[in-house]
Nucleic acid binder design. Sequence first.
DNA 1: TTGATCGAGCGGTCTTTGCGGCTC
DNA 2: AGAGCCGCTTTGACCGCTCGATCA
Length: 891
Amino acid sequence: MKTRNQAKRKRQPYGQDDTNKEAGDDPKANGTLANITPQKNTPQKGINKFQKRVASRGLKGKDINFDSASKLESLSKGKEKQVKVNIGSQNIPNTKAPLNTDDGKSSMQVKSESEDVMADSDWEDGPNSNLNSEIDHQNHINNNISIEIDASPGDNTAKRKPVRRASAEEKEVAELVHRTHLLCLLARGRVIDSACNDPLIQASLLSLLPTKFLKLSEATNLTVDALTPLVNWFHSNFRVRSSSSERSFHSALATALGTQEGTPEEVAALSVAMFRSLNLLTRFVSILDAASLKPDADKSDDMSPRRKTGTGVFQSSTIMVTRSTKPSTSSNKQSPPLDVDNIASIQNNQTPETSIKPSFQSQSQSQTISPVDDQSNERRVDLGSKRKGDLEFEMQMQMALSATATKTSEISNTDSLNISPLKKLKKIRCEEDPSSSSSSLSSISTAIGSRKVGAPLYWAEVYLNGKWVHVDTINATIDGENKVEALVTACKSSLRYVVAFNGQGAKDVTRRYCAKWYKIASHRVNSTWWDAVLAPLKDLESKTTQGIGLSDNLRNERASLEDMELETKALTEPLPTNQQAYRSHHLYAIERWLTKYQILHPKGPILGFCSGHPVYPRASVQILHTKEKWLREGLQLKVNELPVKVLKRSVKVNKGKVTDDEDDCVGPTGTIHLYGKWQTEPLCLPHAQNGIVPKNERGQVDVWSEKCLPPGTVHLGFPRIFNVAKRLNVDYAPAMVGFEFKNGRSYPLYNGIVVCSEFKDMILDAYGEEEERRGEEERRKNEAKALSRWYQLLSSIVTRQRLNNRYAKPEEVSSCHKNDVDKTNDSFDHCSTSVNTQDVQKLISLQENDDVAQMFEDDHEHVFVNGSLDVENSVRKKSCRCGFSIEVEEM
DNA sequence: TTGATCGAGCGGTCTTTGCGGCTC
DNA sequence: AGAGCCGCTTTGACCGCTCGATCA
């Protein structure tokens, strides 16, 4: 298919494009540059335009040199990436340099390796007195302007990547993969949740607990503070390691419990089991880091942690934690836990900058490659081809390692280290909500600085005092739901789905952890599908979550409280600070990003400003349609409503509408009048009266939807039903249901008829009988056709046999006969028609009795008997006994 | 460094109820 | 002359979304 740009180029050949429009109306009339370029335009201006043009044709950025002093160079440089334009210019000022060539045909010659540059330029040959003159020809030989376009591969701008967009199919595949992955992750979460309920594991955990914590199980109104020592105890007694060797999660959990060491997933699950063993209402929470919803995003998307770590669906996501447990690193236990106290101490004692910068610098000077960071090593090898995201990730890795540097980890210096880590920190700080500046800052800084902290992927939610509290034992963080998003962002991971599991159910609690929904909304799957998937799981979750011994009222209250909390969070998102975010923001809008069919109504209230643009609630954005479009939705304009927006029609469409086609939607000047929904009311069509269907000017009813049916009528969308209505003498109108585009034109599509309601049953009954009769007729016709074909087949065999008998040698006769009979039997065996076996037997006996053969013995004359009649086509099929049949049109 | 802006590729939506030439 | 049949470049123009490049 021709692209729009190709079409544009086609419409704008060199001699007609804007370059030459300014240069002169008819460049061919006079081949001099002076004529091509008006006096007011300097050659440089023209050259600039040429450069621009070349750039726009894919030679962008290629080096264009206009060298009037250079000698004539061969233009045919083969495959050299060079474009030269030689323009003779001797004896005249530059402003009047004529464009001459050897053959005098074209005023300008451009040779390039990309033939299409020439190919889609509409150069025209033609006589030109100036160009043909010997003098100018000589001028050209002696003096010329050379335009060199150097497209060497090393050129910066030549590196511009060809933009390749994902096709619809690729997008669909990506979405399917995404959905499948989500389902797998949900199933995995349920497995883990189930393992957390194991009584043996819970009992073992209880036996490990210091007795002072056992009283927590009896306490009522537990607070966050009361839980802190328990979390710290767990944090310091359970370590995180990279991978699990166990196949079954249940046994892996048991092993992790025994060794007090496990994957982040296992450790988080153990913490959930521990809380549950203390009779605390606890959920296992996981970030579902599914494959990207967008094609190729995983290849280039640096947000995806799968690239950074190794295998496994859940394991893949924890970067730093995983790495920190490599043998050569210090044990987790050697690092102080990241808890509220630690954050406070960091705040008090040192700024993040001072804590990170010195060690970072010292690390950056080292050339030793740490055995710890094998993935960093890999990156170093391929530094030249690294993406920006990889560098950023490596930066963060190095910052993380260097900030908590122990003597073992040393990192080589790379170019990427030239970027100040402080700037990186500032960036992250800016990302963070200003309202939580100090604590968040320290937490993020610590997150980056500590080896213990990676992107949090698994944690627990404990129900305390009427609220679900985030408890991350891996990072020893309690009630840090506001920090999760920043941590995840800092670790270049994504927070698209946060799901809480309990009682074999699951609930999406992303809202609790995500303050900037607009950033993740486009990365989440269609909410209808996701909600449908989660609906049964949510029920399960809420039923179990409500605990034992609670009344239904309390259960409902608790469930609705959480829903309200999440809903409130969804509706109170802070205003984004960049304009682009308002383009598809679900809560807010600014006028500049509205499409042509949108309007603000009412225009207010103003919720704030972004770069001077007033911000309105998204709910104020209304869709506009033409009058016709509203009619299709069963709505009509109220009386005296004026269009709220008037659009110009395209030139081409106007051409066809210049006539007196003026109505409320298309004005005389080719404008489209648009109306909002508030200007409409339910469609009021004329009632059917006396069995007559109200029709439009074309004698039909436009059935865009059921709402478009005149009152008192019904749409009977059956094929051939109009015949029945006609036969019963009932008034009807063809139901036009849409348009079909074929051969560049639109054709109305009809589906059945519209009749008055009172005739509905009568017509349907008659239609049913008619269809039954038609079906029977169809069956009979098929049978007759099959029989006829069998006759023909057998007749041909008889003929063949007769010929063989007459002309073939005796030994061939028997074999031929046998073959024919075999073939016939085979055909019969494979025949799937409804031909009566008896009929065929009769045929075979006919054959054996040689009756048919006898027919052919004489000069057989066909005798046709009346066969079936095709009512629709008025064609009757007549057959002869020999099997020959003809179709006769009945008058 | 970051946001704004621009250009380009791609997919989706909207359009919307024939007509001119030929034969009989 | 007029009725009727047949076969037409594939619709394609436009808009919105997205992404990369560039610029301030």
